[in-house]
Design a protein around this nucleic acid. Structure first.
Lengths: 167, 167
DNA sequence: CTCTAAATGCAATAGAGTTGCATAACACGG
DNA sequence: CCGTGTTATGCAACTCTATTGCATTTAGAG
């Protein structure tokens, strides 16, 4: 299972004819496996079980992956970068969903036409960043997925604010 | 001139029947006068000329203004909060423009229908944050406004990258 | 196998933002 | 106009994410 992501990561890096190092492979594999945006901290703790890699190296690898367009960097409202595997088709137009409850960030595929925003004259748009905040399927009460599984961040910080959860 | 903004700020705070302090009045006045989103640092340096206020107090006043809905807090890609005078009509739907060159942030009025973004089933949207990045009227070359005026941040960090400026 | 450029690990640093606590001041009642 | 209690402020110390400098290690080409 996990080995498959490592292989995929290794291939991706090798095809870019870049140096294949364990740090690069493992960080990229972690992102591929996660399927959602991860913080530096999340990556570090995931790798610590099997391949302990220095904090700074992880920062540098993430920066490298971003420059190579293997990943993209998402600014958050908690001053923490999150990194997601880059999606070729949505280059320059990123839409993300951040759960107000568990803080996890997901990429949104169907972004609609957010290009409809009009700029004042003389302004030129180059990139778009859209963040939708709300409640994810696991945190929305009444949803059968509402049990948090292993790699989730408990407890729900909104648990004490029923109003915020729509009750 | 500046005194007008102070008066306006004072009125706004007094009408909320909250304690009118110089820190609150001056910070709010600075935001009103700026007409764009300011960082904590920008506010601090503006006030230092006339009314020196402690860093921490400014942080606390900004937090208070945000809670009172006098201002709203904009997350940036440089891990720095920016604060803008709150706009009643666009509550919960914020669109901002950030210049890649001078780093200034402006509120966008015409947000189009960015609600068109579709969420996966089981997800609930609560707030939207849209940031358009690009070049503002003063940084876009060929524009007659291209001379940076006094309160701008020189030099343009993109000056050495003609490609980024669209040349 | 050897060599060199590139990547890594460690320590120190930077910078935004936060917290604890003693002091100051706003506004209210007399 | 003056005392009084609640609230805001100033200062110092601290937290946390992220960055930088430098010596050491390593990937991969020859």
């Amino acid at each position: 299972m996990a080995i498959l992501f490592s292989n995929a990561a290794e291939d991706m890096i090798r095809h870019r004819s870049a140096r294949v190092t364990t740090a690069r492979v493992q960080v990229l594999a972690a992102l591929l496996k996660a399927g959602r945006a991860l913080t530096h901290h999340e990556i570090e703790s995931r790798l610590s079980r099997t391949h302990a890699i220095d904090r700074v190296t992880i920062y540098r690898v993430l920066e490298w992956l971003t420059r190579q367009r293997f990943a993209h960097k998402i600014p958050g409202d908690d001053r923490v970068w999150r990194f997601n595997v880059a999606d070729e088709e949505h280059a320059g137009q990123h839409a993300h969903f951040k759960c107000n409850c568990c803080d996890r960030v997901f990429c949104l595929k169907d972004t609609g036409n957010i290009h409809s925003v009009k700029l004042p004259s003389g302004y030129r748009a180059q990139q778009l960043e859209l963040t939708v905040k709300g409640l994810c399927a696991e945190c929305l009460p009444g949803n059968k997925l509402h049990k948090l599984s292993a790699n989730k961040k408990p407890p729900c910080k909104l648990a004490n604010y029923p109003q915020a959860l729509g009750k």
